[in-house]
Nucleic acid binder design. Sequence first.
DNA 1: GTCATTTGTTTAGGATACTCAACAGCTTTA
DNA 2: TAAAGCTGTTGAGTATCCTAAACAAATGAC
Lengths: 204, 204
Amino acid sequence: MTGDFRRAHSSAPPAEPIEGEQKGPDVGTRLRELRKMHGLSQRELAKRAGVTNGTISLIEKNSISPSVGSLKKVLDGFPISIADFLTLELKPRKKVFYQAKELREIASGAVSFRLVGRDTRGRAIQMMHERYAPGADTGDEMLSHTGEECGIVVAGVLELTVGGEVRRMVTGDAYYFDSRLPHRFRNPGTVDCVVVSACTPPSF
Amino acid sequence: MTGDFRRAHSSAPPAEPIEGEQKGPDVGTRLRELRKMHGLSQRELAKRAGVTNGTISLIEKNSISPSVGSLKKVLDGFPISIADFLTLELKPRKKVFYQAKELREIASGAVSFRLVGRDTRGRAIQMMHERYAPGADTGDEMLSHTGEECGIVVAGVLELTVGGEVRRMVTGDAYYFDSRLPHRFRNPGTVDCVVVSACTPPSF
DNA sequence: GTCATTTGTTTAGGATACTCAACAGCTTTA
DNA sequence: TAAAGCTGTTGAGTATCCTAAACAAATGAC
């Protein structure tokens, strides 16, 4: 059996191939490279981890998708956490001043997001001038992404939901939270709501 | 069969129990809480993820340890990466919402800096609500420190000097620069100037 | 050269993960 | 009072993971 686990069991019909893992190499390749960086053989790692060398081999060849428990056991042989393992990296003067009209509109309609700077590449912060029309909403679907974000309400009223907690915020109020917590913005008022926000790293 | 996967298969003899997962709740609890934060039922999530509701149930009860492939499929239903999922702080100790009066004043007088959050430790961004009285100035001495900073003028007029370049900015205008460049803020107008700014890393 | 070690790979079979479908409990609608 | 809708749980069967052991190839010792 030289199966490829990406076929994702026998579930969805054709089931489009699962992406490797965020960006970067797949689990098997990551493990192999990390193991070699540590100068270990499959058997040495297997012994430390309390699994068999065959398991290491199968994982590295992507012949199987290890269970979370097994992967943790294997990585404990280094040791390294699963999160670190999956995100590990294996391998002058810009424009300063922007006129209001130069802010780049990246979401027009009931919700307007105007970005400071043409693009966020090479920048640590993404700052935006946001405007929500009455009733406007970032969507039924909760947002969620890596990073941190904060903002101050400059005008109007903002209803902010973060990790299940809902709060009504008025002019001058502010927020700060981990962007991985599901969140949602909505204007429950009758006039435009304006917010200045910042997040890191840039997510658009 | 109500097995507990922590017994880690039939490998190592007693095999001390595998720790939940780094710090914080185990995979099952994390999944359950995250799912509820998103307001989804087991069946809804299962449908999005392309697995059965039974699988979600078994994972959440820690009756099984899902394979990495399966866990990824499940988390794609939100979506969120495995790494973020495992490091997510479920119970945010940090305060998220701040009333205007709660912003911490860190520079009173002609210049007022009001910080979002009591302190910036453990945070990636320092956001401030700044107010400059007419004629107010950050000082004859140019500022300079590591990091990046940006802001949007919310009211009044701001004269900003960065790396020798002086610019008059009005409501709605914005800036972004490397904080190592010497810089200075001044209000050349006759009414208060209000700015919302953000910088990283926090420098106070 | 032969033997001993080490390497990674592969096979068979038992252990576990996963699906399908049935089940019980709760809420809403008729 | 069903009846239909939802919720999460669970049992039986199948697909997959994981181990134990055998294997071939490469390396080093003598």
